[in-house]
Amino acid sequence: MGVLFNFGELDEKATIQKVGKFFKTDVVRLERMANSSLNSALRSPNLGELLGHE
């Protein structure tokens, strides 16, 4: 690709395992630390909430 993307081969299985662990354990721990949920950040906006109606 180019000098900026001159990485070695990726171990696909190890990458999948690490990403799975991140979302199963690390994200939960980070959500607890932030006292917030990732789901609230990723959900679709609600027009009623934007207008002040619930």
Rank of each mutant, 00 (worst) to 15 (best):
D11C: 00
V19H: 03
L51D: 02
G2L: 03
E54Y: 07
T15R: 05
V27R: 10
L47E: 03
T15P: 00
R29V: 08
L30N: 04
S36V: 00
L51Y: 13
S40F: 01
M1L: 02
T25F: 11
N39P: 00
D11M: 01
K18D: 15
V19G: 10
L30S: 10
L10N: 06
E9M: 02
D11Q: 04
S40C: 02
V3L: 15
N39R: 08
R32C: 04
T15G: 08
E54C: 05
L47C: 03
G20M: 07
A41W: 12
L38I: 12
L4P: 10
E31K: 00
A41D: 05
E49W: 02
F5N: 06
R43N: 07
M33C: 07
R29N: 12
A34G: 09
S44D: 15
F22R: 03
F23P: 08
S37E: 15
E9K: 14
L47P: 01
E31I: 00
R29Y: 11
V27S: 01
E12P: 01
S44P: 06
D11A: 03
N35Q: 10
E9F: 14
A41N: 13
K21L: 07
F7R: 07
G8I: 01
N46V: 09
A34I: 11
F7K: 09
L38T: 04
R43P: 00
S37D: 10
T25M: 09
L42D: 06
N6P: 05
D26S: 09
N35P: 00
T15N: 04
A34S: 15
V3I: 14
T15W: 11
A34P: 01
K18P: 00
H53R: 05
G20Q: 08
D11R: 03
N46K: 14
L30K: 04
K18L: 14
K21E: 12
T15D: 02
T25W: 01
I16Q: 15
A41G: 05
